[in-house]
Design a protein around this nucleic acid. Structure first.
Length: 600
DNA sequence: CGGCGCGGCGCC
DNA sequence: AAAGGGCGCCGCGCCG
């Protein structure tokens, strides 16, 4: 599965031209000091310092030995280092690694043969992570009191040094005995690099122009309303809807009331969703849809959002690397993964700086072709738009059909245009189709599936199994059987998509990790102070990540160098994950002053 | 009053 | 134009 990967490269993914193999574990001791120890020689600490001295100590070791830091949880340790101006190259994030190792089918054999289960602190920290994230983490520059004991203020006490060492040993054994140790090492390195990047993205922040954003709001919604009042343009559309529906007191924010009013006006709708509304001819429809569009902007990214999330010209969402089952990231707060195109014009480079915006073109279909080693699909994709390639291969007539068919294959569509086109795709690309069909079948049986590098899907919940069980009993009703088939297919669609989405997430992590290393190695630019804090003020750095898209904020004179690095790292990620399989991962890449100008 | 499920919709 | 995967956030409306 993992062609062309070597241990050296696997280690490099989170390093900066790093060649050594030093690891240093960090954790609090009983005496209240934070100790740094070599996991292979824990008896002789390399250092033991009060929490307040940790950043300087880490910085010294980082400079001299460039180690891989082994710690409980990047989200608990790294923000405070960054706030003190200390950046590290590499780490092992035990919390994230445990989530992978304890569920991977690649470690199933060793786990079934007596490997120890994860310690309680792992579950504790994981639960704590779900608590409200400490937005202030990293802003209190010299507050290191909670490096030990109750870390992070999320109510999840961190583990002691001894617990960290024990967990590290457990994880190394699981990795070594896994079915594909090299792949697992790469996955864990990439995941840990992602953790560092998540913290750095928060620390650097996405450059954001309040002025531009306010202009967008005023143009779209009207002047900022008084507290409690609705924007002028929303009120105008609301009045039109009330007039056309002859419903003077209608509250347009109430789905229930709107549904009733529409039906009373003779419009037979089941919901108030936009796609259903559009099916009906009525003078109330257009202003209603317009109202909903403005309401969405006002509530999700309006003035209140600006006040809450834009501080000192930066948007600092709280990224949660590894926050979803597939390995995609989540965010909590700020809606960073849903920035509407409408407000992207507010993402503006600092004076003298530029944005390098890149997204991987049609990443998931390419990952599917490579995963399945489907050379016919790779031929259609290589050097061109995948969907056009599929048209040129004679599979379908139109680009849109190709797109619908591919998405349908990856998401498990069975009906509509998409479902009808999938069989044609299956004839042209049988290997790719077989891969996702196998993944779906596995899910329908209640099994788990695994990504390219070894992240496995969760098992369905107990309630799902009960439904399946009930349908298999002799007295099962037709309704029981229907319900069971339907939920089996639901889970099959999840596992079908999991292998593709999860493997694509791995590609993105490797891409970004390689890029992070390249950027960190670039010379600082003199006389270029961006408003991004001490760690990032003079060098190109990542400021945004969205599944298959990144933004680098760079001194203007380095923009071309950065753009080249971005592209080279994409090629590198492809080789790292898929060896010499003949497929490319092209980027849509732009050097711009505003995110809005990068729209394809 | 806060918690929670849901509808709806933004992004990939 | 409208069916399939993954998310987070908002407001509503119901519940205790």
């Amino acid at each position: 599965m993992l062609g062309g990967t070597t241990d050296t490269r696997a280690g490099d993914v989170a390093g900066v031209g790093h060649t050594g193999n030093v690891r240093i574990a960090i954790g609090p001791r009983d005496d209240g000091l934070i100790a740094l120890v070599d996991p292979d020689a824990p008896g002789q600490p390399l250092a033991a310092v009060p929490a307040g001295e940790l950043p300087a100590t880490v910085a010294a070791f980082e400079r001299d030995e460039s180690p891989r830091w082994v710690w409980s949880d990047t989200r608990q340790w790294y923000p405070k280092l960054l706030a003190a101006g200390v950046r590290i190259e590499r780490c092992d994030d035990l919390l994230l690694a445990a989530a992978i190792l304890d569920h991977s089918t690649d470690t199933a054999t060793v786990r079934e043969h007596g490997a120890a289960a994860a310690p309680a602190w792992i579950a504790r920290l994981r639960a704590g992570q779900l608590a409200p994230a400490p937005a202030a983490l990293g802003t209190a520059l010299f507050d290191f009191d909670d490096f030990d004991g109750d870390q992070g203020g999320a109510g999840a006490p961190g583990p002691s040094l001894d617990e960290v060492l024990a967990e590290d040993a457990r994880q190394r054994a699981l990795t070594a005995d896994s079915a594909r140790p090299r792949a697992m090492r790469l996955l864990l390195a990439a995941e840990s690099a992602g953790a560092l990047i998540g913290a750095e993205l928060h620390a650097a922040g996405l450059p954001w122009s309040r002025e531009v954003h306010e202009r967008v709001l005023e143009t779209t919604l009207g002047p900022r309303p008084r507290p409690g009042a609705k924007p002028e343009h929303m009120e105008r559309f609301a009045a039109a809807v009330r007039r056309e529906l002859e419903a003077p007191g209608l509250n347009l924010d109430s789905q229930l009331e709107v549904l009733r009013a529409l039906r009373a006006a003779g419009i037979p709708v089941e919901s108030t969703s936009r796609w259903e509304l559009r099916e009906h001819e009525h003078p109330a429809i257009e202003p209603l849809i317009a109202y909903k569009k403005l309401a969405r902007l006002a509530s999700a990214n309006g003035w209140a959002w600006l006040d809450e999330w834009i501080v000192d010209g930066r948007f600092r969402p709280d990224y949660v690397p590894g926050g979803t089952a597939t390995g995609r990231w989540a965010t909590s707060g700020g809606g960073a993964l849903q920035l509407p195109k409408l407000v992207r014009s507010a993402v503006v480079a600092d004076p003298g700086w530029r944005l390098v915006v890149a997204d991987a073109a049609q990443l998931e279909p390419r990952v599917l072709a490579a995963l399945a080693r489907d050379e016919a699909m790779a031929d259609a994709a290589r050097g061109r738009d995948v969907y056009r390639g599929i048209v040129e291969a004679g599979v379908v007539e139109e680009r849109d059909q190709a797109k619908i068919a591919v998405l349908g294959a990856m998401y498990g569509a069975t009906t509509g245009d998409s479902g009808r086109l999938v069989p044609r795709l299956a004839r042209a690309f049988p290997r790719a189709m077989a891969l996702v069909d196998r993944a779906a079948a596995q899910g329908e049986r209640g099994g788990s599936v695994t990504t390219n590098l070894g992240r496995s899907s969760p098992l369905p919940p107990a309630s799902w199994r009960e439904v399946q069980q009930r349908a298999s009993e002799p007295e099962a009703s037709p309704a029981d059987e229907r319900r069971a088939r339907s939920s089996a297919r639901d889970w099959g669609r999840f596992t079908r998509n999991f292998v593709v989405q999860g493997s694509a997430a791995e590609w993105s992590l490797c891409w970004m990790a390689a890029l992070r290393s390249r950027l960190a190695a670039m010379e600082p630019s003199a006389n270029r102070a961006a408003a991004s804090g001490p760690v990032f003020e003079a060098t190109p750095h990542l400021v945004y990540y969205l599944h298959d898209e990144i933004i680098v904020h760079t001194p203007a004179e380095r923009a071309e160098e950065v753009a080249a690095a971005v592209a080279e790292c994409a090629a590198e990620a492809g080789r790292l994950l898929f060896g010499d399989f003949p497929l490319d991962f092209p980027l849509d890449l732009a050097v711009v002053d505003s995110y809005a100008l990068a729209e394809g």
